[in-house]
Nucleic acid binder design. Structure first.
Lengths: 241, 241
DNA sequence: TTAGTGCGGATACAACGTACACACCGATGT
DNA sequence: ACATCGGTGTGTACGTTGTATCCGCACTAA
């Protein structure tokens, strides 16, 4: 009775289930498991230990493949970017850029944690991400623009997409964090603090938007409208090379 | 000798320095200290314990004023937004929006941690932040636009600013994280992995930019050029109300 | 058969956020 | 003058995190 729960010795060890066929881990398996956890429970659930239990493995096991948490996140990013389907070759530059922006947003909404990456993963030059940049640049190629201008256009579009979707995701995160299920509920819960803010009288135009705006709750429309502005601005520069 | 380092008893307690005049803490003092730490050492240095030592106070003391780390971050955000000087009243809408975007970028570059806030703080409706939004809206007021359109324009601009500056900051963070001091050093250190990427031949246009681009290292020019595009796009919509 | 190589396990540590109970100070009611 | 009390900061403690380090095992090549 003494050693029952302490040291598993000999007999217990002899009937251990399976000697575990080696090569249980691989970068792909790690990435898939991590993405699954992050999708389901948010990026704060991504823990080296949690990942280990998910893989049915000791806490330190994954360190054979990734040098730390930052590496893991880069692996995850590249993994999900395989989902981003590039627009058909030959599509016009504006439509191509528009599609990539929309699909990037959809990708981020499918994987909310993409909006909360640490700096090291934000600009990581992973193969699949670079492929997307390349596709954008190719859309603008042959229009007589110099490389710098082309890149600025792509970066501008990407910045808008990241910023807008990031804000949208932050909103969602706050919602799930509080257990709210509709934006109506969010506004109701924020009503007190919002009213307090508005009643100071410091924000008259903002107040008018809150009371008269009609599209507050349509993120799709908001994103696409902003996207129009950005593409219009780029188009103006494309037209005058 | 026995109790020397253990229990400060009676005599030691009797000669305690000062009975500490109460009200040592205040939201302002807390915010200032926290911002100081975050500016100097990055957001990951913001720790309830670190903040406490900075204030010369016990680890749990600040919890009287902020309900947790999230609260603290919101306090910090509102604190630094006092630095954002609104453009002179009466400035034209385009110049006003441009100035706000530029100053927001400068603010973020002064406080790099603004780019790494958790969702709860990203969209926090703090007084000073809302004041900036109000100023933007006011710039567009009286042009015959409906509230939804005005807000989309402001949000678009803000999304671009956030996204672009966020990427710029991520780059800086990676640099300081590795102890690099110039972008040249970054590119040199990334050269191997960059060359590996480019040598796959999958990214010909991107490669051309890397080798022929001239403005890679001028973040100011990049930001302002993108800003032009966005404002041009908005202007097109303003002209056709 | 034996040595070697590399995968995964086990243990350990410092640092984190924060719950909880308590000691102290100054103001207040009597 | 004295007891009472609420608000402020203290002390201690717990569970969880990222990761360093060492070790034992199961294959492979000789």
């Amino acid at each position: 009775m003494a050693a029952q729960k302490d040291e598993p010795s000999l007999w217990e060890r002899l009937e251990r289930p399976a000697p575990a066929p080696r090569q249980t881990l691989s970068p792909e398996r790690i990435a898939t498991a991590a993405v699954g956890v992050a999708d389901a429970e948010g990026i704060e659930a991504i823990t080296m230990r949690r990942l280990a239990t998910e893989l049915g493995v000791a806490p330190m096991a994954a360190y054979r493949y990734v040098s730390g948490k930052d590496d893991l996140l880069q692996l995850m990013v590249d993994h999900v970017y395989t989902e981003l389907e590039p627009p058909e070759e030959g599509t016009g530059w504006r439509e191509a850029l528009r599609l990539i922006a929309l699909r990037t947003r959809e990708l981020m909404l499918r994987h909310l944690w993409l909006a909360q990456l640490p700096p090291s993963a934000v600009l990581a030059l992973t193969p699949n991400r670079t492929a997307t940049t390349e596709r954008c640049l190719r859309a603008l190629d042959g229009l007589g623009l110099d490389p710098d201008t082309m890149m600025t256009m792509v970066t501008t579009l990407h910045s808008y997409t990241l910023g807008a979707t990031g804000a949208e995701i932050a909103m969602r995160q706050v919602m799930v964090g509080h257990g709210w299920t509709s934006e109506q509920e969010v506004y109701k819960s924020m009503a007190r603090q919002l009213r307090h803010l508005l009643d100071t009288g410091r924000y008259p135009v903002f107040k008018r938007y809150i009371y008269e705006g009609r599209c507050k709750n349509d993120p799709d429309w908001q994103f696409e409208t902003g996207l129009q502005y950005v593409l219009d601005g780029i188009a103006a520069r494309v037209a005058v090379p």
